[in-house]
Simulated assay, not measured.
Amino acid sequence: MRHKDENKSEAIFEATIQLLNEIGFSDISMSKIAKRANVSSATIYVYFENKEDMFGKLYKRVKEKMSQQMIDGLDGTLSTQALCERFMRNSMKFIMNNKDYFFFLEQFATSPLIEKLSLGDTSSMFGPLFEIMEKGKEIGEIKPFDTLVLLTFCYFPITQLARAHYKGQLEANEVNLQQVITMSWDAIRL
Rank of each mutant, 00 (worst) to 15 (best):
H3S: 09
D5P: 00
E6A: 04
E6F: 09
K8C: 01
K8Q: 13
S9G: 05
A11C: 05
I12A: 02
I12P: 04
F13L: 10
E14V: 10
E22N: 14
I23P: 08
G24I: 01
F25I: 05
F25Q: 13
F25S: 09
F25L: 06
S26R: 09
I28T: 07
M30L: 11
R36G: 00
N38L: 06
N38E: 15
N38H: 12
V39L: 05
V39T: 03
S40A: 14
Y45Q: 06
V46I: 14
K51D: 06
K51I: 07
E52S: 10
M54T: 06
F55I: 14
K57C: 15
L58M: 11
Y59T: 15
K60F: 05
V62T: 11
K65S: 06
M70Y: 13
M70F: 11
I71G: 04
I71D: 05
D72F: 13
L74C: 13
L78D: 04
S79W: 02
T80K: 00
Q81G: 01
R86M: 01
R86G: 02
F87V: 02
M88K: 06
M88Y: 01
I95E: 15
N97E: 12
D100A: 15
D100Y: 07
F102W: 14
F102H: 10
F103C: 11
F103A: 03
E106M: 14
Q107Y: 14
F108K: 01
F108S: 15
S111P: 03
L113D: 15
I114M: 08
E115F: 13
K116W: 06
K116D: 10
S118M: 10
S118I: 06
S118Y: 07
D121G: 15
D121S: 14
T122H: 13
S124G: 05
P128A: 12
L129F: 03
L129K: 08
F130L: 11
E131D: 14
M133D: 10
K135S: 04
G136L: 03
G136W: 01
G136P: 01
K137A: 07
G140V: 01
P144F: 05
F145L: 12
D146R: 10
D146C: 11
T147F: 02
F153A: 08
F153K: 09
C154V: 02
C154H: 05
Y155L: 12
F156P: 14
P157W: 03
T159C: 08
L161N: 02
L161R: 09
L161M: 13
A162M: 11
R163D: 04
G168D: 07
Q169T: 09
L170A: 09
E171P: 01
L177Q: 10
V180I: 07
V180P: 00
T182G: 00
D186Y: 01
L190Q: 04
